[in-house]
Amino acid sequence: MSWISNTFSSSIGRKIVMAVTGLFLCSFLVVHLVGNLQLFKNDGGLAFNAYSEFMSHNTIIRIMEIGLVLGFGFHIYEGLLLATKNKAARGSKYVSDHIEQNSPWHSRNMAVLGSIVLFFLVVHLYNFFGTLRFGTPLVDAQGNENAYALVVDAFHNIFYVVLYVLAQFALLYHLLHGFQSAFQTLGLNHRKYTPVIKLVGVVFSIVVCAGFAAMPIYFYFFK
């Protein structure tokens, strides 16, 4: 088993862990966005509350949440380690300046962007899941916990709306580099297919982040 520990403690191994967990979290973003689009239904929140109830009490989903938490944990841990090692490996100011001139800003600041997203996630989970599971939530007409009411209330707080939108910009730039980089790390890098992967990554990043950012803006200005 030593070869496994040696592999995943190496720089290449850590990058593979980052790539796999990153793509796994991308799939979570899609599922989460599709579910949250129920917020835009003009039904007083019934569809969103039913979705929230299903996600909160389904045994399979609860088990998958453990995998999700582990995915986030590994991704954050390995990301911080890689950022620290990369910073130390840059060496002289000449090398550092050369790297900065030949790479976009967001690719050099993935740890910063990820930290902003992490801070937002902590606030987000506290606001919604903490209130639903440890508070005394209202119920809707179907008897489901009224998560929709929590969303409406949160998205009428200008500070939370600003934080939410800024976090989506940070996530956008994090994904712009991370999506294509993950495929490259896994060896899926080809002269013919790489431009397609980059295009898909850009479209994916914009659509997902714009979808999430639209929610607080919609509720703050139109609900």
Rank of each mutant, 00 (worst) to 15 (best):
S9M: 12
H177R: 07
L199W: 10
S11T: 10
A147V: 11
L33R: 08
M64F: 14
L39V: 03
L163R: 02
S181M: 10
H75M: 00
L33T: 11
S2G: 02
A111L: 04
V165A: 14
H98R: 15
G114S: 07
H106P: 00
N58L: 04
L150W: 05
W105A: 08
G135E: 06
L37Q: 02
I76C: 01
F219L: 06
F219Q: 00
L39I: 09
Y77K: 00
V208H: 08
K198C: 00
Y218H: 15
K15L: 11
A210C: 15
F222I: 12
T136M: 07
T21C: 09
K15A: 11
I61K: 04
N58E: 12
K93S: 13
G79H: 00
L125G: 14
F129A: 09
E65D: 02
K192C: 06
L176D: 05
H190D: 14
A210R: 05
F159Q: 12
A182Y: 06
H75Y: 01
Q142A: 11
S5W: 12
A149L: 14
A214D: 03
S52V: 04
H124L: 08
N86Q: 09
I197Q: 06
A147P: 02
L188M: 15
M55Q: 12
E65M: 09
V196E: 00
T7Y: 15
H174Q: 04
A83L: 01
F221S: 03
A83W: 10
Y164S: 15
S11Y: 14
F159D: 14
F74C: 09
L132A: 07
S96G: 11
L171S: 14
L81Q: 11
Y193V: 09
L113F: 14
S5L: 14
N58M: 03
Y173M: 14
T194G: 06
E100A: 15
G211T: 05
Q180T: 15
S107N: 05
G44S: 08
L29G: 12
I4Y: 14
F159M: 07
S103N: 10
F219G: 01
Y148V: 04
Y148I: 01
Y218E: 04
A141K: 10
H174D: 04
N6V: 00
A83K: 03
D43G: 08
F48A: 04
P137F: 02
A149E: 14
T185Q: 08
N189A: 12
Y77R: 01
V20W: 06
G22F: 04
M110D: 00
S92E: 04
L80F: 14
N42G: 02
L125A: 03
R191K: 14
S181Y: 13
M18A: 13
F8T: 03
V152L: 12
P137W: 02
I60L: 15
F54D: 09
S96E: 13
I60H: 05
N102W: 02
H124N: 08
T7A: 09
V152F: 07
Q38H: 12
L113P: 08
C26H: 06
L188T: 06
Y173L: 15
F134V: 02
E100R: 13
